[in-house]
C-alpha cells in the first residue's frame, strides 16, 4: 500500500467536498475490492475518503419501495425484516455474496459503484428496476451500468441510497465461481409494475437485461417457454467458464428463477 491522506467525513456533503479537494481521491465504502487493490499496489490514490461515518445506512419501506442506504452492509440487507418481507429475493441475493466477513464489511453502494461484472447486486438493481440516488441526482437502473467496472456516475459523484420498487414476485438464481464465489452467471427475474424483467450478471462485461426472455415470459410466465431462447451477449470467457457455457447457464439460471416464482 502506498501512502495516502485519509479522511473520515461525518456527512455525505463533507465526503464529496473532501473528494473534490483531493488531487486523486477515491471513496472507501466497505473496501472489499479497493483495499486489496491498494494493498497489492495495483492502485494508488492521493486521498482515501472513508464513508463509514457518513450515516448513509438504514433500510426502510416507504409504500411500494424499499430504500437502502448506500453504506448498508450485505449482511444488514440479508437480515433485514423489511427486505425479507417485501423482496425476499433481494435478501437471498445479499446473503449469498462472498462469505460472512465480506457480508459484514461490503456495502451495496460500494458494490454497484464498483460494477464488477461478476458482482451480484447489479442483477438486483437492474432486475428490480431500482433507482440509484446520488448526491447529485437519481439514476434509473437501465442507465446505470455502462461497461466493465463502468457506471453512469460522474467524477466524485456519491451514491447515497438505492430504492427498489417492491415487485409482485422476484427470484435470483446464481451459479457461483467455485473459487471466488462471485457469480459466473446470476439471473434476477422479477414481475414488476413495468412488466417482467430478467437481469443477468456475471456473464458479460456488465449486467444486462435478457430482453428476449422478458418478451416470451410476458406472454407465458413459465420455465418451459425459455426452452430454446438463447440470449445474445458479449459473453465473458475465462478459465472457469467459456462463453458457450455462460450462455447455457443464463438459460438454466433464468429457468430456475422462473420456477421459483411460478
Amino acid at each position: 500500500m502506498y501512502d495516502f491522506n485519509y479522511h473520515r467525513p461525518a456527512s455525505a456533503a463533507d465526503a464529496a467536498a473532501a473528494r473534490k479537494a483531493a488531487a486523486d481521491g477515491v471513496y472507501l465504502a466497505g473496501g472489499m475490492t479497493l483495499l486489496p487493490t491498494l494493498k497489492q499496489r495495483l492502485a494508488r490514490s492521493s486521498d482515501v475518503v472513508d464513508l463509514a461515518a457518513t450515516g448513509l445506512t438504514g433500510i426502510s419501506r416507504d409504500g411500494g419501495a424499499i430504500t437502502i442506504g448506500a453504506m448498508s452492509t450485505h449482511d444488514s440487507v440479508a437480515t433485514s425484516s423489511e427486505v425479507q418481507s417485501a423482496i425476499p429475493a433481494l435478501g437471498i441475493l445479499a446473503g449469498g455474496i462472498g462469505d460472512p466477513q465480506v457480508r459484514n464489511r461490503g456495502t451495496i453502494g460500494g458494490s454497484i459503484a464498483n460494477a464488477d461484472p461478476a458482482a451480484d447486486y447489479p442483477a438486483a438493481v437492474l432486475g428490480l428496476n431500482a433507482t440509484v440516488h446520488t448526491d447529485r441526482r437519481a439514476i434509473g437502473a437501465d442507465d446505470f451500468f455502462t461497461g466493465m467496472f463502468e457506471t453512469a456516475l460522474g467524477d466524485g459523484e456519491l451514491i447515497t441510497k438505492v430504492t427498489f420498487p417492491v415487485p409482485a414476485a422476484a427470484a435470483y438464481a446464481k451459479f457461483a465461481n467455485p473459487a471466488s464465489r462471485y457469480a459466473i452467471v446470476g439471473v434476477m427475474v422479477a414481475k414488476t409494475d413495468g412488466g417482467i424483467r430478467v437481469a443477468v450478471t456475471g456473464a458479460a462485461g456488465n449486467a444486462f437485461r435478457a430482453t428476449a426472455m422478458e418478451q416470451v415470459l410476458a406472454g407465458d410466465f413459465s420455465a418451459a417457454v425459455l426452452d430454446g431462447i438463447s440470449v445474445d451477449a458479449d459473453y465473458n470467457s475465462d478459465i472457469h467458464a467459456s462463453a458457450e457455457y455462460r450462455r447455457h447457464l443464463v438459460g438454466v439460471m433464468a429457468k430456475r428463477a422462473v420456477r421459483e416464482i411460478a
Binding site: P178, A179, S180, Y182, D238, I239, H240
Partner: peptide, 16 residues
C-alpha cells in the same frame, strides 16, 4: 500463471 490468487485457484472449503 492464470490461477495466481484465490479468486481463480479454488481451495476446498467446508461446504464443498
Amino acid at each position: 500463471l492464470l490461477s495466481g490468487s484465490y479468486m481463480d485457484y479454488c481451495m476446498p472449503r467446508a461446504d464443498d
